[in-house]
Amino acid sequence: MEGEPLLKVEKLRKHFGGVTAVHDVSFELRQGEFLGIIGPNGSGKTTLVNLITGFVKPDSGRVTYLGKNITGKMPYTIAGQGISRTFQMVRLFYNLPAYKNLIIPLSSPRVKKLRGGEYGERDDVAVDLLDDMGFERDSFVPYKMAGSLPHGYLKRLDLARAMALRPNLLILDELFSGMAMSEVASTLPLIEKFNAEGLTVIMIEHRLRELFRVVDRIFVLNFGEKIAEGVPKEVMESDAVKNAYLGSEIEET
């Protein structure tokens, strides 16, 4: 491994009352890597994302991004440095047309700076992004109220919102949950394409077949602890994972 890692998580810990949601999790992520995080329900995956993105403050531990300590910073500060996320339960502006949802990240200081003060045509940028996500540009879909869109579209709109920020690191929290097979099939290559273009991706997913196809490396969480890490095939054959994960639960793939 050469040079500084993009993201370095050291001994991150979070309690909720008596429950240790994340227990001394450490990992490193290199620029351009595609990391998968799996684990049974309640194993702390979403909390880990919330800790990295600043929505939850850790009890102890440290998150370093591009050499800077971002532990416990405000979510907008962290997002402003290029860590963008999607939400497991999509968080969108349902009273706005779909493309207007993207105006929010597009009008953020970060994007303004990246676009070099170039103003205007933001609606076009938004519609372009949505077009990439499979909202046909010439249909009425990008202009419909977000609240009236079906679930699969909402998930992709959430992805578009995250991508509108032009992130370095994209964290996908169960993006595919509730998506139809066809939607997954069209969205997955898109994320692979982003990754191939240099975007670093962390993907939390229960759909293991899709996940294993795209990731370089995965790690497994169970009761807040990292129990295995490595290339998917090896990890899934390790005994700890079999016991904790596959042994105790029937996975829908």
Binding site: A79, F93, Y94, L96, I104
Partner: peptide, 24 residues
């Protein structure tokens, strides 16, 4: 305007606005 759009978005879902790198 965009400015008001952001304000309305804060009302709808402030966490989503925060994750769009805007200091709510």
């Amino acid at each position: 305007e965009d400015y008001g759009l952001v304000l309305k978005a804060i009302r709808d879902d402030d966490r989503a606005v925060m994750s769009a790198a805007i200091n709510i």
